[in-house]
Deep mutational scan, measured.
Amino acid sequence: VQTVGQWLESIGLPQYENHLMANGFDNVQFMGSNVMEDQDLLEIGILNSGHRQRILQAIQLL
């Protein structure tokens, strides 16, 4: 089972590990259960829309 940090590294966005972990997104399986939306990522400080889309697309593959 991948950690959130390993998963972010695999999609090329390791800089957001602290954003996700500090806001309770600390379990890759949980994130894959379709609980995260674009607005959630924006609210936790991921401002780059391309990065948000990449995260959301990768979540669909979990």
Rank of each mutant, 00 (worst) to 15 (best):
V1T: 10
V1F: 11
V1G: 05
Q2Y: 12
Q2N: 14
Q2D: 08
T3L: 04
T3D: 07
T3I: 02
T3Q: 06
T3F: 02
V4L: 12
G5C: 07
G5N: 06
G5Y: 08
Q6F: 04
Q6T: 09
Q6E: 13
W7T: 02
L8D: 00
L8I: 01
L8M: 02
E9T: 13
E9W: 07
E9I: 08
E9K: 12
E9M: 10
E9H: 13
S10N: 09
S10A: 10
I11C: 04
G12P: 03
G12V: 01
G12Y: 03
G12F: 02
L13D: 00
L13H: 00
L13M: 06
L13Q: 01
L13G: 01
P14N: 06
Q15N: 00
Q15V: 01
Q15L: 02
Q15Y: 03
Y16K: 00
Y16N: 03
Y16V: 03
E17Y: 08
E17L: 08
N18I: 12
N18M: 12
N18Y: 12
N18H: 13
H19G: 04
L20F: 15
L20V: 00
L20D: 00
L20T: 01
L20S: 02
M21H: 07
A22P: 01
A22Q: 13
N23G: 10
N23M: 12
N23L: 13
N23V: 10
N23F: 08
G24Y: 05
G24C: 04
F25P: 00
F25G: 03
F25S: 05
F25D: 03
F25W: 12
N27R: 09
N27H: 07
N27I: 10
V28T: 10
V28M: 14
V28F: 09
V28G: 06
Q29A: 13
F30G: 15
F30V: 15
F30I: 15
F30H: 15
M31N: 07
M31W: 08
M31C: 10
G32A: 15
G32M: 14
S33V: 12
S33F: 10
S33L: 11
N34E: 11
V35Y: 08
V35N: 12
V35H: 12
V35R: 13
V35W: 06
M36L: 13
M36D: 06
M36K: 14
M36V: 15
M36H: 12
E37S: 14
E37F: 08
E37Y: 09
D38A: 06
Q39P: 06
Q39A: 14
Q39V: 09
Q39I: 10
D40K: 11
D40Y: 07
D40M: 09
D40W: 07
D40V: 09
D40E: 08
L41W: 01
L41A: 00
L41G: 01
L41Y: 00
L42D: 04
L42Y: 10
L42M: 12
E43Y: 07
E43F: 05
E43T: 10
E43C: 08
E43S: 13
E43N: 15
E43H: 12
I44P: 04
I44Y: 07
G45F: 00
G45D: 03
G45P: 01
I46M: 01
I46R: 01
L47Y: 11
L47P: 06
N48K: 07
N48D: 15
N48R: 04
S49V: 11
S49R: 12
S49P: 13
G50D: 14
G50R: 10
G50Q: 03
H51T: 03
H51L: 01
H51M: 00
H51G: 03
H51Q: 02
H51A: 01
R52G: 01
R52K: 01
R52D: 01
R52W: 04
Q53G: 09
Q53A: 13
R54Q: 09
R54T: 09
R54C: 07
R54V: 08
I55K: 01
I55E: 01
I55Y: 03
I55H: 02
I55F: 03
I55G: 01
L56H: 05
L56Q: 06
Q57S: 12
Q57K: 13
A58L: 02
A58W: 01
I59S: 08
I59A: 14
Q60I: 11
Q60S: 10
Q60M: 08
L61N: 07
L61A: 15
L61R: 14
L62S: 06
L62H: 05
L62F: 11
